[in-house]
Amino acid sequence: MIAFLARRLVTLLTTLAVAALVIFGVTEVLPGDPAAVMLGLTATPETVAALRAELGLDAPMLVRFLAWIGGFFTGNLGVSYAYRVPVAGLIAERLQVTAPLALLASLFASSIGITLGALAASRANSAVDSLLMAGAQVGLAIPNFWFGILMVLVFAIGLGWFPAGGFPGWESGLLDGLQALFLPALALALPQAAVLARLTRTAVLEALGEDFVRTARAKGLTAAQTLRRHVLRNAMVPVVTMMALQFSFLVTGTIIIENVFALPGLGRLIFQSVGGHDLVTVKSLVMIYVGCVMVVNAIVDMTYGLIDPRLRFGRGVGR
């Protein structure tokens, strides 16, 4: 048991280290001297050299790599070339948009997906079931950014219930903030909800065939009670796993959705910094995104190993 957790932890740390090396290495070999980019075309070689020294760009590569890694623990990730503010502060500020957005989206995805999936399973092979599963198939095919645009068309431009984009900031009130995040979160949630609905249906159908369901009905529980107390609970293991594994799609989904709705979040920041060759910001952001995904996947593997000892030896979940 301990050995399994330790092994998985070592794998995680190794993968994170390799990822950090790759990301750092790639930003190193990229063309363009950041100092020269910052100062523009008219800069003299002397001023460029002075700025390089100021930014710490003339230190040996290994020193800069270790300083960068250390920065994740001390909170000093350097200064953004484009925004001229500390990267850590920039990320913390943008996280105030992206974290609630991702949270709201997973909330929508799980509540919609699990409810509809359970409904479809409880009416298996009925018209309701076929309709719901056809809907899930369509939900999987619709690009989330198009769904976002359609909702803007209907609910922002047509009905005027929500803003078409932008974010007022949390200081203008919780309600205004949530209103600005509602449509983006719904757009982000659509494909996830479709996946979860399909999976929940399968998992519930499987659980419905178990003996304990017959026992529950025999002792006098209604179909609804059995579904809620026994079936759903058993069906939730694969569903929760899938939610965690989909975290990666949710996180990268924010990059496009934040662009659709002009939200000042991490996703938009990463896109803008990549476009502006703001490499200091890019490498830390990419590391954070990749790190989050790797940590979540590792946690899923570990909890699964805790639940089902057979999985402690193979290649892990979902492979």
Partner: peptide, 19 residues
């Protein structure tokens, strides 16, 4: 393969395309 899987595809594609 495991390692490539851990990189979010859209994010990496954006990086590849920008450079």
């Amino acid at each position: 393969c495991d390692f490539t899987f851990a990189f979010p595809a859209v994010l990496t594609a954006i990086l590849i395309l920008t450079f």
